[in-house]
Computed example of a mutant assay.
Amino acid sequence: MTEDPFVAHRSLLFTVAYEMLGSAADAEDVLQESWLRWADVDQTQVSDARAYLVRVVTRQALNRLRTLSRSREDYVGEWLPEPLLTSPDVAEDVELAESVSIAMLTVLETLGPTERAVFVLREVFEMPYGEIAEATGKSAAAVRQIGRRAREHVAARRPRVQVSRSEQQAVVERFLGALRTGQLQQLMEIMAPDVVLIADGGGVAAAALAPIRGAELVAKVLARANRVEVAAFEATTVWLNGAPAGRIDVDGEPAAVSLVMENGRVTQIYLVRNPRKLTRLDEPAELAR
């Protein structure tokens, strides 16, 4: 029996939706809605199931993104993407790993819905302009213009320094080691002087409501997490969104930490504490292009 195209391409479709939405929960909802639409189609009339399904998922994700854009304006504090546990294999596809990184997804959040869809479909999945036009309801000429603007926007904001996975892992382990001991000096030595910490508690977990800047201040905030009165504090290296990262458990409550680094020092820290965004830390997500 031939495998249903939706099942065969599910990892790709999830990845498209996740990159457009920055949320695994919303991506799963989009896939459910897309599956219902696919089930109603005369599949014998579909010549290219992969392209057709990507169009369906893109349209559903765009609808969801426009709704989410309004609700995220009322979000308490900083909004960060939902971290995903991934296998080290994802890092082997360098472009895929970069596109799903917390840093990149945070940059994509600054794009409008259509710009984000065009950027993801063109730059990550290398779809032809004609197919993107069908998926977004724009002309091919308009898609090219939107794509150019989106590329310029992202290029001006994305981290520019490429770091090897081994170097990244070494810095993450040093960072987590310093966090375990709570030593301010060790933490400050690992971070760049102008490091920025962005935390997401969603109004549910304690977190700074605005970015914290500067190594000394960031170190004090992080060291505070490992206080004497904390009964249990664990910090372990995991693979999140295609890169080495950290999982921190304070009295059994998890948090995810993703780092951006340059010249062996941490320049940006993304800390997710909102429990609603930490449900995908135990089972690796299947991502594909």
Rank of each mutant, 00 (worst) to 15 (best):
L21S: 07
A117Q: 07
A91T: 12
R59Y: 08
R289F: 02
D4G: 02
R265F: 00
E73P: 00
V172C: 01
V228K: 14
S164C: 04
T110P: 03
E134T: 07
E286I: 01
E131A: 06
E189W: 00
R265G: 00
D42K: 15
F6C: 10
Q183W: 05
R247C: 01
G264R: 08
L13K: 14
V124W: 05
R122M: 09
V118K: 10
R273A: 06
E19T: 11
V100R: 05
Y129P: 04
D89M: 04
R180I: 05
A231W: 11
L65A: 01
Q168L: 02
A288H: 11
L21P: 02
V228F: 02
R70S: 11
E95W: 05
A215S: 06
A133S: 06
E98I: 06
A17M: 13
T2S: 01
A25N: 07
L96E: 08
D40G: 03
L209C: 03
M20N: 14
V107H: 07
E216I: 04
V196Q: 14
V56C: 02
Q43Y: 01
V16A: 01
G22K: 10
L65V: 03
V218N: 10
A156M: 11
I212Y: 03
Q183H: 14
E73G: 01
L187A: 05
V204R: 15
T110K: 13
E283H: 14
Q168N: 13
T181S: 11
V204S: 04
F6P: 05
R66E: 11
E126K: 12
Q169F: 00
Q185I: 03
E126H: 13
I132M: 06
R144I: 06
I102R: 06
R50I: 08
E33V: 13
E126C: 00
G246M: 05
V7L: 06
A208E: 15
A223P: 05
L12R: 15
V120T: 15
Y129S: 11
A256M: 07
D200R: 13
D93Y: 03
V118D: 04
V172R: 12
A25T: 12
R227Q: 12
L53V: 12
A207L: 01
Q162V: 10
Q185P: 00
I269T: 13
M20T: 12
K277C: 00
G177F: 01
Q268E: 10
D4M: 02
D40L: 05
L85W: 05
V154M: 06
V163T: 14
M261T: 07
I132P: 03
L259P: 00
V161E: 12
G264I: 10
P193F: 06
V266D: 09
G214W: 08
D249C: 01
P88C: 03
A25K: 09
D29F: 00
P128I: 13
L68R: 15
A49D: 08
L209E: 15
A243H: 10
R59E: 15
A208W: 04
V195Y: 02
D29S: 04
A232S: 10
V163N: 07
